[in-house]
């Protein structure tokens, strides 16, 4: 087996995650799909790291994880705040950005 298959898997997971972001309305599930996309990217980084024989890819994946963790913290806080004021976790309910 060629490690390139990991990349194919990564692309597949990324696309599934993206479709999930577009389809789901529950903000938490949308967030999970974003996490899925990030993880897919990480997989690609790690695989590239192996393909190229250096650790830079892993470093990037590491930073992605850190940033993702920070993002999750803030994102979930936002969801909680929105839920408190609107009593709904649906992204469609927060649709004030229009005339």
């Amino acid at each position: 087996m060629n490690p390139v298959n990991y990349l194919y898997l990564s692309a597949l997971l990324f696309s599934i995650g993206a479709a999930g972001v577009l389809i789901r309305r529950n903000a938490i599930v949308v967030f999970m799909c974003v996490e899925l996309m990030l993880n897919a990217c990480n997989l690609a980084f790690v695989t590239f790291s192996r393909l190229h024989g250096n650790l830079d890819g892993q470093i990037i994946a590491f930073f992605t994880m850190v940033v993702a963790a920070a993002e999750v913290v803030v994102g979930l806080a936002i969801i909680v705040t929105i839920f408190r004021s609107r009593h709904s976790a649906s992204v469609d309910d927060a649709s004030l950005m229009k005339l």
């Binding site: 490690p3 898997l9 993880n39 790690v46 790291s49 192996r50 892993q58 590491f62 994880m65």
Partner: peptide, 16 residues
């Protein structure tokens, strides 16, 4: 995915 990281030689990342 963690298992795949380990398989790809990213032991630290797998655990993380």
């Amino acid at each position: 995915l963690a298992v795949f990281y380990l398989a790809n030689g990213a032991y630290f990342l797998g655990i993380v």
